[in-house]
Design a protein around this nucleic acid. Structure first.
Lengths: 199, 199
DNA sequence: ACCTGAACACCGTTCAAGT
DNA sequence: ACCTGAACACCGTTCAAGT
């Protein structure tokens, strides 16, 4: 394991522990057994280090979510399962979710590439679901963007406590997936499968 | 105008200019013609100051968006117009959008109250649209949460550059509203009204 | 009651210097 | 080629002291 990888691992641990502001280069270096300026030989800045963490996590996420089910499932079930898996990930790794899908002023090549790959995987799932009638027809990029927006918002609002029901009861993001999909399909299907837990 | 209001105005200006990290208490004080520790007589911390800015902006937003149209419009047009207005606000005031709907660890009373008010306004719009058939039936809190999640995600992903079409063309959040609403209503209506610009 | 100036404990980043 | 230690220019926050 190279020092670069060690630094990424340390940064990820600190991120999970207390968000980006807890990821100080001093502590990252200390955890890797190195000085506080050593990270600058491997990353141009703290922002660059975090972008690398984000890119790695997004790649991992796509691998975990887009993996074919065992045994192979119908495509609309795959879409629903993928959506639920995404929400589970966002809930279990809130800091990573916020980092990966947060605000990136100057973008990192690896992160942009990972985002494009994630998008393609979703478009494929959506197109498949349209073919089987679980989603209505229409430009798959547009429909995928609606799905993506819904998922992102559900995860973000749940974390921020903005997903309120009557009397400030917090709503469950997973429950919304059922509402979303049944409305989107015009009542043609109703899916309520629970996802296998992501690692 | 009290010093407290002056500090809020200064903080808002700095926020629009360069995000929360540009809102330094030193500069907030300087803009208000006061020392850098003076804000601590009016806010317990920088975070408390920002929460107050967020609460004010959210109140303003609800007033601007939930205002009855002139002349009065059908309810489903109101919902569509409100959604488009929200997206316009988020695009024109990206830092305020991120602040208001960002991560709030220790919540502020005023902000929580403003969020509840915004939620109620949306639930009313959704319930009205269900009554006129523009949205399918179902628990209005659930349907409103889906609408809210979609809107939040569309605004956030557009800002983050994650809303990609084929060949990395950036998709238009407003276009997605049409897709979202026509799918949600099961093709019963198709709305494409453009909103009046928010100030 | 409200404000100030100095001070404290942090940051990210740079750079000359070491091996 | 890679790492270090000191230094710089910032932060938020505290606190004794002023009016």
């Amino acid at each position: 394991m190279t020092l670069r990888d060690e630094l990424i691992a340390s940064a990820t641990r600190l991120l999970d522990d207390g968000g980006p502001e807890k990821v100080t280069l001093r502590e990252v270096g200390r955890l890797a057994g190195v000085s506080r300026t050593a990270p600058y030989r491997h990353f141009t800045s703290k922002s660059d280090l975090l972008a690398t963490v984000a890119a790695r996590e997004l790649d991992r996420l796509v691998d975990g979510i887009a993996a074919p089910a065992e045994p192979p499932a119908a495509l609309e079930v795959s879409l629903s399962a993928a959506m639920l898996r995404f929400l589970t990930w966002a809930r279990n790794r809130p800091e990573r979710f916020r980092l990966v899908f947060g605000h990136w002023a100057q973008e990192n090549d690896a992160l942009r590439e990972a985002a494009a790959r994630a998008n393609r995987a979703l478009v494929d799932l959506v197109a498949g679901s349209q073919g089987s009638g679980a989603l209505p027809p229409g430009d798959p990029w547009n429909v995928a963007a609606v799905v993506r927006a819904f998922l992102h918002g559900a995860a973000a609002l749940e974390q921020n406590g903005h997903l309120l029901g009557p009397d400030r009861v917090r709503l469950d993001a997973e429950e919304l997936v059922g509402t979303f999909l049944s409305r989107a399909s015009g009542g043609r299907t109703s899916v309520s499968a629970r996802p296998a837990p992501t690692r």
